[in-house]
């Protein structure tokens, strides 16, 4: 038996000299390195550059590197930036609230009233189709509906309900929030559904067996259990609504210059890249915070869109 350790050592020398852990590490590197490099070059570095720009300033169309928080202070104190951020946040919040309100009944029906797996899958596709349908077309559609010669106005006019087109319908806050709500509702549905789906039938049956009415079951079982999904959906809806810039340009009024329009303007017109970058940094930070806030809920609601 004394020969065993020697032989073992010999076989270890023969066997490529790699321990199991080393082999695992090598395989991991094989899979992870290319994407990690890609993310580093095309995400991390650009974000760092953005950060770098945001800390500097422009002088006579030339960029001067600096480490100053001046741009950030400007965003939160100088008009119009501060009020635009506030307004964007309000729009995002309204979008999140309205999307959730519209989404809940659909998610509820899908999770509690549809019995066959096939029907639920069909419904799933039905909900996700508008989500992936062309964004521009969706915004455009509302423009044709709400415009002064659009469907609503021409319908009401021909019915004689109004004598001249309702102007507030389009190019207003109303149309921006409506369009954003329309665009993000499918996401909210799937987010809430993912959570409702997990409520075991037996739990509802137990509540009913204990004498709870439908309203009590909803109020005391279903609603509390669906909150993580509502929250996860709300956070993402808010974040996307907050950062949307196309809808305000196409259906918003002149005062609806939302945050990204400013980014665009800064890049395209005044070329004040440091300030634009600072706005970008604020949004990335906000998204990261929101993602973390939603993280605890995310563990239970894994929405795939």
């Amino acid at each position: 038996m004394t020969a065993v350790p020697e032989r073992a050592a010999a076989s270890r020398r023969r066997g490529a000299g790699l321990s199991a852990q080393a082999r695992d590490r090598r395989r991991l590197t094989l899979w992870l390195l290319p994407p990690a490099l890609w993310f580093f070059v095309f995400m991390i570095i650009p974000y760092l550059i953005m950060l770098h720009y945001s800390l500097g300033r422009m002088d006579d169309l030339r960029f001067i590197p600096d480490i100053s928080l001046g741009n950030f202070v400007k965003i939160f104190t100088v008009e119009p930036y501060a009020s635009v951020i506030l307004q964007s946040a309000q729009n995002g919040l309204m979008t999140a609230v309205f999307s959730t309100l519209l989404a809940y009944p659909v998610a509820l029906v899908m999770a509690l009233h549809m019995k066959s797996e096939r029907a639920r899958f069909f419904m799933h596709i039905l909900i996700i189709l508008p989500w992936w349908a062309s964004y521009l077309v969706k915004v455009y559609a509302w423009r044709t509906i709400l415009g002064s010669s659009g469907l609503v106005n021409s319908g009401l006019l021909s019915l004689g309900a109004i004598s001249e087109p309702l102007e507030f319908l389009l190019y207003s806050r109303f149309s921006v929030v409506l369009t954003l709500t329309y665009i993000f509702t499918p996401f909210a549905i799937l987010s809430i559904y993912a959570q409702l789906e997990r409520i075991p039938t037996s739990l509802i049956e137990a509540a009913r067996n204990l004498g709870a009415s439908d309203w009590e079951i909803f109020r005391r079982v279903i609603l509390p259990m669906s909150l993580p999904g509502v929250l996860a959906g709300g956070v993402i809806t808010f974040s996307l609504g907050f950062g949307d810039f196309v809808a305000p340009v196409l259906v918003g009024g002149p005062e609806d210059l939302m945050i990204n329009n400013i980014v665009i303007n800064l890049l395209g017109v005044s070329l004040d890249r440091p300030l634009g970058s600072a706005i970008g940094v604020v949004i990335v930070a906000l998204a990261a915070v929101l993602l973390t806030v939603a993280n605890w809920a995310e563990r239970r609601t894994q929405v795939r869109v």
């Binding site: 065993v4 073992a8 050592a9 270890r12 199991a20 852990q21």
Partner: peptide, 25 residues
């Protein structure tokens, strides 16, 4: 089988140490 890596200790096959042998081998 080699599908799990031992934290410590050894595995011998016919008195030959296979602790670090890849599972596929």
């Amino acid at each position: 089988a080699g599908l799990e890596t031992p934290t410590s200790g050894r595995i011998l096959e016919d008195a030959r140490d296979i602790t670090d042998t890849a599972p596929e081998e």
